[in-house]
């Protein structure tokens, strides 16, 4: 079991000697092997939520549980794809991807196979010996995703992982992520500012309020996806054309717009 639970979570930050709440009473559960997308206006505390699940930060109030226990600190059972990649610039693509596996003490031959497989999957073949700064932003992001996937973690925490990709690559990666998620479902918390991406990928979409962030509403995409049989379409754009998809997307858009306007105090 590796569910993520946010139980009435608050988080205060200090700025100019004054503390202000970034999150105020976040309640959200990502069930075991469920894919939840988190959308919300920028600055509402999405990254903060993810960092608490990852163990980089502790809540100021409330509890964050993973697998039923409070998060002890960061670890490879909860792989993170950072918003700014955080690749090691002094390591090659292959060494970046291999870094976590070496901590696991995995035997070299098995490690090589795993790395080769993930590099192929991410379309990084031929770039194994390149350094991150020699790659485009989109390629760097793929390396960051590969570095997380290769750990085969129970929980994946992804902070706008497709944000730096061009539209075409983005679609490929979305389809790829759906495919991987079908073969080997994980518990995924996925932050995005792209509403369509959230609706396409997630089992449920959680919409946050303007700062201080709370969960405003949670939409069950899974039920609609099953009822309307979205999966008969292999391509993103075909799914995004469906009336049920558009309806859901528009609903979330409206919900977010209320926040943006209301939030500009």
């Amino acid at each position: 079991m590796s569910a993520i639970e946010f139980d009435n979570v608050g988080r205060l930050f200090e700025r100019d000697g004054r503390s202000f709440p970034a999150l105020d009473g976040v309640d959200l559960t990502v069930a075991d092997k469920e894919f939840v997308a988190l959308v919300g206006p920028s600055g509402c505390g999405k990254t903060t939520c993810l960092r608490m699940a990852a163990g980089f930060e502790a809540p100021s109030s409330g509890r964050v549980l993973v697998g039923g226990a409070p998060v002890p600190g960061p670890g490879p059972d909860r792989a993170v794809v950072f918003q700014q990649f955080a690749l090691f610039p002094w390591k090659t693509v292959a060494d970046n991807v291999a870094f976590g596996l070496r901590n696991k003490g995995m035997a070299a031959p098995e490690r090589r196979d795993r790395i080769a497989a993930i590099i192929k999957l991410m379309g990084l073949d031929g770039y194994e010996t390149a350094f991150p700064h020699q790659l485009s932003g989109g390629m760097q992001q793929r390396v960051a995703i590969a570095r997380a996937y290769v750990l085969d973690p129970q929980v994946l925490l992804m902070d706008e992982p497709f944000g730096a990709l061009d539209a075409q690559t983005r679609v490929v990666m979305q389809e790829e992520l759906v495919r991987i998620a079908r073969i080997n479902p994980r518990t995924v918390l996925f932050i995005t500012h792209a509403v369509e991406e959230a609706v396409y990928l997630a089992d449920r979409v959680a919409v946050m309020t303007q700062r201080p962030g709370r969960i405003k509403e949670v939409l069950d995409v899974r039920a609609i996806r099953a009822a309307e049989n979205w999966d008969r379409h292999a391509r993103v754009e075909d799914v995004m054309d469906l009336e049920s998809f558009v309806h859901l997307r528009t609903h979330i858009w409206r919900s977010l717009r209320e926040e943006k306007v209301g939030g500009e105090r």
Partner: peptide, 16 residues
């Protein structure tokens, strides 16, 4: 800090 965080997330010990 992001490099240290990445290393910790990947389960890296102090020495490494």
């Amino acid at each position: 800090a992001k490099y240290i965080e990445a290393a910790r997330m990947l389960g890296t010990g102090s020495l490494r």
